[in-house]
Nucleic acid binder design. Structure first.
Length: 171
DNA sequence: CGATTTTGACCCGCGC
DNA sequence: GCGCGGGTCAAAATCG
C-alpha cells in the first residue's frame, strides 16, 4: 500500500543541488502507478553496453519521459590496494535524481537489499543504503528524503548493472 | 527455512 | 592524533 502517488504534471525541473558532489538532475515524473521511466544516457560514458539495458523502463508502452536535460555525472575510479588491507571498489557512475513521491523506494525493476541507514547531519531524515541483491552486481543505491521538501525523494544510483532487470515489470 | 531488515559498531578519509 | 562525517558490516530479528 504505498501506491499513493502524487501525480503532478510537472514537466521536469532543472537546477537543484542534491548533495555535496552531486549536481545532476534529470527527474522524471509520470502518471502510472509505477515509478520513473528512463534515465537517458547522455553522459560522457565511454561505452556502456550494459547501460542501454540499464535504462529503467517500465510502464508498458514506454510512456516514460526521457528527459535528457543537463546532467552531470561524477565519475571516479578509486582503486586502492597494496597493503591497506582493504580494497576499494570502483565507482562507476553516479546518477541522482529526485522525484516527488511518498514512497522512498521506487520500484525500478531491480531487487535491492538494504545494508545501512544513516542520519545525515544536515537533514532530519535518514539516508538509506541499498545494494543490488543479484550476485556479481555491485550496484548501489542511496535513498534520501529532501530536507527542504520532504515530498521529494532523492535517489542516487551508483554503478552499472551487469544483468537485466530481474523483477518483472508490473503486471 | 531462507532472504531481507534492523541497528549499532566499525572503518576510512579528512580537517583541525 | 583525534574527532567528525559518511559509508559499510554483521549479528540478531523479522518477514514471507
Amino acid at each position: 500500500m504505498a501506491d499513493n502517488y502524487t501525480n503532478t504534471n510537472l514537466p521536469y525541473e532543472t537546477d537543484f543541488e542534491v548533495s555535496d558532489f552531486l549536481e545532476f538532475n534529470d527527474w522524471i515524473e509520470e502518471g502510472p502507478p509505477l515509478s520513473f521511466s528512463s534515465i537517458s544516457a547522455d553522459y560522457n560514458i565511454p561505452q556502456n553496453p550494459n547501460y542501454a539495458s540499464n535504462e529503467i523502463m517500465m510502464n508498458s508502452g514506454a510512456s516514460g519521459i526521457s528527459s535528457s536535460s543537463s546532467s552531470s555525472i561524477h565519475e571516479g575510479n578509486i582503486t586502492r590496494d597494496s597493503g591497506s588491507g582493504r580494497e576499494k571498489k570502483e565507482i562507476r557512475e553516479k546518477v541522482a535524481f529526485k522525484t516527488k513521491s511518498e514512497i522512498e523506494v521506487l520500484n525500478d525493476g531491480f531487487k535491492w537489499r538494504k545494508y545501512g541507514k544513516k542520519m545525515v547531519k544536515n537533514s532530519p531524515n535518514p539516508r538509506n543504503y541499498y545494494k543490488c541483491s543479484i550476485e556479481g552486481c555491485s550496484v548501489k543505491k542511496r535513498v534520501e528524503r529532501d530536507k527542504d521538501d520532504p515530498t521529494y525523494v532523492v535517489t542516487t544510483y551508483e554503478g552499472i548493472h551487469n544483468h537485466q532487470a530481474t523483477l518483472y515489470i508490473f503486471g
